[in-house]
Design a protein around this nucleic acid. Structure first.
Lengths: 122, 122
DNA sequence: CGGCATCCGATTTGATACTG
DNA sequence: CAGTATCAAATCGGATGCCG
């Protein structure tokens, strides 16, 4: 009987939670880079750009905890650690990419709205 | 020639930006409630639940600035202010709802992953 | 009713130094 | 190479009080 958007409070909370997980400063950037295949820690760092190793570690731990990536350690010297999207991670990338595409298509409209707003509320 | 996910750095930044906008503590809750139609300030406050008026104000201002909602003031006494999704806001709700649906369907898997991770890293 | 101003604690992020 | 530890800075969120 609900043909519209499902937005009762519980559902919205769930949405809000994962959006906060995914919506932190670095998560999507990292997941996006891993979308093409596994990367090592410093490869990922370079690919993302501008991220400190602390934040990269934090982000990766969170993603690993939630089951979006796997962490594989090769006990070599020097050590090598690969990060790779799990099946769940790839599935997450689908709606995230959709939102991303929306974002790319509409940045102009958003920027226009901002300029208009900032002009009025100068 | 790009049949895979589009995740070059610029695009990911754009995605990251809107995700941070949408991924703050209250934005999706508010947008979700407005999805059914316009609401007054305190109606919205009650509908969302648990939000302070400061944060509701901040959230609404941000959404208004980005062109996702309109703010209509009725110069009556006492004053009445209606908030309503714009066309852009409704369009945003589409990919956000998709992500939301993904979230609802996969909370179990995420929770399982967390418990497993927390068990190992006790 | 629908805000804004202020203060304060909590959380987040970043810079730097050190380690197996 | 891939982290951990620590500290400082910035931002966020909430509580309170006042106002048109």
């Amino acid at each position: 009987m609900l043909l519209r958007h499902p937005h009762n409070t519980e559902d919205c909370r769930a949405v809000s939670e994962i959006l906060q997980r995914v919506g932190d400063k670095w998560t999507v950037l990292v997941v996006g880079k891993l979308g093409d295949g596994p990367l090592r820690f410093n490869e990922l760092r370079a690919a993302v750009g501008g991220i400190s190793q602390k934040m990269l570690t934090t982000t990766l731990r969170g993603l690993e905890r939630d089951g979006f990536i796997t962490r594989t350690v090769f006990p070599t010297i020097p050590p090598r650690v690969d990060y790779e999207l799990t099946e769940l991670g790839h599935e997450l990338l689908i709606p995230v990419s959709a939102l991303g595409e929306w974002a790319r298509k509409n940045t102009t409209r958003v920027k226009a709205a901002r300029e208009k707003f900032d002009g009025v509320h100068a």
